[in-house]
């Protein structure tokens, strides 16, 4: 088969892809930060002693986990503005959708982390006179963060991949640039392959960190 892979095309599109990479990184960092913070509060709601709060937390998590992320993004861009009476930019809509989605998934990581700490830890802390809140903050949480670190890095990998869906809303991130370039130059093979490789280079260090952390923990255990 005589297809000539045109490497000069790859070089030519790199500056444009780089602009996309910056937007992808921006989206990634924002959504991960907001999602992790928000997810923590959702997990507290999930384990609250008050049934209505627990139900609200659970509904939030189930809703965002059982609906495809792409639908969530489209909903926040096309449907949500009607509800609030104000148009959102594609970037804001995407950031909102991905952040809430990340919050739902990380809430479950926090929750399983908190529940994995043995009862004895709570009892011990209480026995030396700590309040429930103090025990949670000073005894339970530090252990949760350590145990859950691999799960959080995994989530970071997922979030990076989800940001590519923002291309559907025309956010000018990496995938969007790839799509536009590929229809401009009629070189989908070179361009889409390059986009894939750029994602790989961007995300692989995170995956590697995650499995390294997992290995280290298994050795300690």
């Amino acid at each position: 088969m005589g297809y000539q892979f045109d490497f000069s095309m790859v070089v030519k599109i790199l500056p444009v892809l780089w602009r996309g990479v910056l937007v992808t990184l921006e989206l990634w960092v924002i959504c991960l930060a907001v999602g992790l913070v928000l997810g923590f509060f959702v997990s507290l709601a999930r384990i609250s002693p008050f049934a209505p709060v627990r139900l609200a937390g659970r509904s939030f998590v189930e809703l965002f986990r059982n609906i495809p992320a792409l639908i969530q993004l489209i909903w926040f861009f096309y449907a949500f503005p009607i509800l609030i009476g104000a148009q959102l930019t594609p970037f804001v809509a995407a950031a909102l959708g991905i952040s809430l989605n990340t919050a739902a998934f990380s809430a479950e990581i926090y929750r399983s982390g908190i529940q994995s700490i043995e009862r004895g830890q709570w009892e011990g802390a209480m026995a030396i006179g700590m309040s429930r809140a103090d025990t949670f903050r000073r005894v339970i949480l530090p252990q949760v963060f350590r145990r859950m670190l691999p799960a959080f890095t995994n989530r970071a990998v997922e979030v990076a991949k989800v940001t590519s869906l923002a291309s559907v809303l025309s956010v000018h991130e990496l995938m969007y640039q790839g799509r536009v370039l590929s229809s401009t130059y009629y070189r989908p093979l070179e361009i889409l392959t390059t986009v894939g490789v750029v994602y790989l280079v961007m995300i692989y260090p995170m995956t590697w960190t995650s499995s390294a952390l997992e290995r280290r923990m298994r050795r300690k255990a």
């Binding site: 991949k161 869906l165 559907v168 790839g178 799509r179 994602y199």
Partner: peptide
Amino acid sequence: IEFYRNTPGIVHFFWVYYALPVITN
């Protein structure tokens, strides 16, 4: 495995639809 774990699904969809035909006809 590593390739698929570290690249977004939408890239695979576009690659198969638009790029694969270029190599395989």
